[in-house]
Design a binder for these strands. Structure first.
Length: 615
DNA sequence: GTAATCACG
DNA sequence: ACGTACGTGATTACT
């Protein structure tokens, strides 16, 4: 047995690294007794983050409590694996920091399923996020193990990830290659692998006390654990990639980007992504660039370039001026380049041997609790054109079904703020923006009026001002000003709720408590954002509830992605109607007397089929 | 590492 | 006192 001693919060802890059968027998004995005393912290070290890649390796599995850690070298095979697997199967409760990652690793590489592990897991990252969801950039601690332990467990806790990166460099590895190549017996590697479970074991009871202290209900944490499990199962399934189509698209976009970059080069722009070069060249052509960025640089974003190219925000010809050929070339080159590198190439880089991509779903990403999806970021694929979504397919014999909540944030606003006339509109089954336009303008209200009041409504939810709403909608400021004034007269409860929520937050450490008991810290200088936080957060929890409903209804296997107000699913072609109705049922609910409704759309084999012509 | 930009709800 | 568009992820240029 190799052992390492370390000081954690003034106490000496021991990291055990079994080397032979006797050592492993000691581990089994310890695990049996420790599991009787309480939960066991669990972690893994692997070759990297690409769990679904061919060459991926599980290297060690670590178990620990507050004073002892055991680093089991899974990679050595044989008895090491059988002993670790036995522990994974028999330990009653686990503590894991960021459990979805380890669940997937152990599911795929240790033969212990997500379904078996998840019900026995407490995720300390979920608890920490419920305590304070802010990321470090927003003034929070963040939810990485290191800063949490530095704050709650031991101020002298080492930066195990960061220090390991230095070790990797010293050995001639990079951060990316080090985890795969470092010697399994390296002392620092084993010490830190062990320390992480000891810190997790010590962090959990502290977080539990803190959550109880600020009054977060256990039920909220349990709900988040269920969602984490469901989303991990979705990630394990992944989506089929049309590899042939994607490769062709990659080539087409590459050629398009290169052609337009060549055109831009004729005007002296060497790199179409350099705003400085573009601004200089355009100025040299006699264009007047008046807009500035926050930091004071000349602004040459898409909106500026579209105007110079005589196009509206949908790229339609305006006929207002002679199109500037450089602006035109840069717009096209940048779009092709971005769509290629951010989407097509990431699909090809992340696809597994079975032709599927497995995007990471972070169930608690935003301050409001909203989920995010990364690698690839499939929540943000272009929707103006179907070509990128066309790369992703339903399973063989399946079609895509997308079910959306209808105007969910407006319904949530009506429910939470008790907006009387808005609730009447929803109860009457009205399109809320057309309803508002009619209340103000009478039966003669036009689709253009609807658009104006839709803008005013979003302005209310987001906290926007007249000039911003005007810019976003393209409508003149005086018209927007009148619409916003009418909005306030019609729905006075919104302003009152905003003031009330801001006052309540000021009285409790600048934290607004959401409808589901979520703690949402407000920034002192923009407390108006509370209206958005309240709506966005409650809408997220309605989607979460819909996902739990879907599992209950037996259609978890069909779910593929959560997209804020939408559930994307792959369903057997012959039963698409039945599945569509079932998803609508799962997403239909009542929020304080306001109906929350959903509408399913049945597509073809590709996701792109829901965005234009059918495939 | 920061700023700018652009993709989504 | 007044008014403020909200929330993400990813890439590229540049210091």
């Amino acid at each position: 047995m190799r052992t390492y001693l370390h000081d954690v919060a003034g106490e000496t802890v021991t990291i055990h690294v079994p080397q032979n059968a006797d050592d492993l027998a000691q581990f089994t004995q310890w695990a049996r007794e420790a599991s009787r005393r309480g939960p066991i912290a669990l972690d893994t070290e692997t070759s990297g983050l690409d769990i679904f890649a061919d060459h991926y390796r599980l290297r060690t599995v670590q178990f620990g409590d507050r004073s002892d850690a055991w680093v089991i070298h899974w990679e050595r095979g044989g008895l090491f694996q059988s002993v670790a697997r036995l522990a994974l199967e028999n330990i009653r409760r686990f503590l894991i920091h960021n459990a979805p990652f380890d669940w997937l690793v152990l599911d795929r590489h240790a033969g212990v399923s997500v379904e078996s592990l998840a019900p026995r897991t407490t995720d300390t990252r979920i608890k920490a996020t419920l305590l304070d969801p802010r990321q470090p950039q927003e003034g929070g601690l963040g939810t990485a193990l290191k800063p949490l332990c530095g704050y709650y467990v031991d101020p002298s806790a080492p930066d195990t990830q960061g220090d390991l990166t230095s070790v990797f460099r010293g050995l001639g590895f990079t951060k990316a290659t080090g985890f795969a190549r470092i010697d399994l017996e390296h002392p620092t590697y084993n010490l830190y692998a062990g320390l992480d479970v000891i810190y997790t074991a010590r962090l959990d009871p502290i977080l539990t006390n803190q959550l109880a202290h600020v009054g977060v209900r256990d039920a909220l944490a349990e709900y988040e654990h269920e969602l984490a499990r469901i989303c991990t199962i979705m990630q394990r399934r992944g989506l089929v990639l049309d590899e042939e189509f994607t490769r062709e698209l990659d080539a087409t976009l590459a050629e398009e980007a290169s052609n337009y970059a060549e055109k831009a080069a004729r005007y002296g722009v060497e790199s179409v992504n350099s705003t400085r070069q573009i601004a200089e060249a355009l100025t040299g052509m006699g264009e007047l660039l008046t807009e500035r960025t926050g930091a004071g640089a000349v602004k040459v974003d898409k909106a500026v370039l579209l105007a110079l190219a005589d196009r509206d925000l949908q790229w339609q010809r305006l006929g207002a001026r002679t199109p500037n050929p450089l602006a035109e070339a840069v717009l096209h080159a940048k779009r092709s380049g971005k769509w290629r590198t951010t989407y097509a190439q990431t699909f090809l880089e992340t696809v597994d041997a079975d032709g599927r991509v497995h995007p990471f779903i972070n169930t608690l990403a935003a301050r409001t609790g909203r989920m995010s999806v990364t690698r690839p970021a499939v929540q943000t694929l272009p929707s103006s054109d179907q070509m990128i979504r066309r790369c992703l397919l339903a399973d063989p014999g399946h079609v895509m079904v997308s079910t959306d909540f209808q105007a969910v944030e407006m319904r949530v606003l009506a429910a939470l703020a008790g907006v009387k006339r808005m609730i009447e509109g929803f109860l009457a089954g009205e399109d809320i923006h057309a309803f508002t336009a009619r209340l103000v303008k009478g039966d003669g209200a036009t689709p253009k009026d609807r658009k104006i009041f839709k803008g005013a409504g979003f302005g209310k939810v987001y906290g926007g001002g007249i000039s911003t709403i005007s810019r976003q909608t393209g409508a003149p400021e005086d018209e927007i000003a009148r619409a916003v004034a009418a909005y306030d007269r019609l729905y006075p409860e919104i302003k009152r709720a905003s003031s009330r929520w801001q006052r309540e937050a000021r009285g409790s450490g600048m934290v607004y408590i959401s409808a589901t008991g979520r703690r949402l810290p407000l920034d002192r200088d923009r407390s108006y954002a509370v209206v958005n936080y309240a709506c966005q957060s409650a809408a997220r929890d309605l989607l979460g509830q819909a996902m739990l409903n879907a599992e209950e209804a037996g259609i978890l296997d069909a779910m593929r992605l959560p997209i804020h107000d939408e559930i994307l699913a792959s369903v057997p072609k012959g039963e698409a109607q039945e599945y569509a109705r079932e998803f609508e049922r799962c997403m239909t609910m009542d929020l304080y007397g306001v109906p929350i409704t959903a509408e399913a759309e049945i597509g073809g084999r590709s996701w792109g089929s829901l965005y234009g012509a059918d495939f």
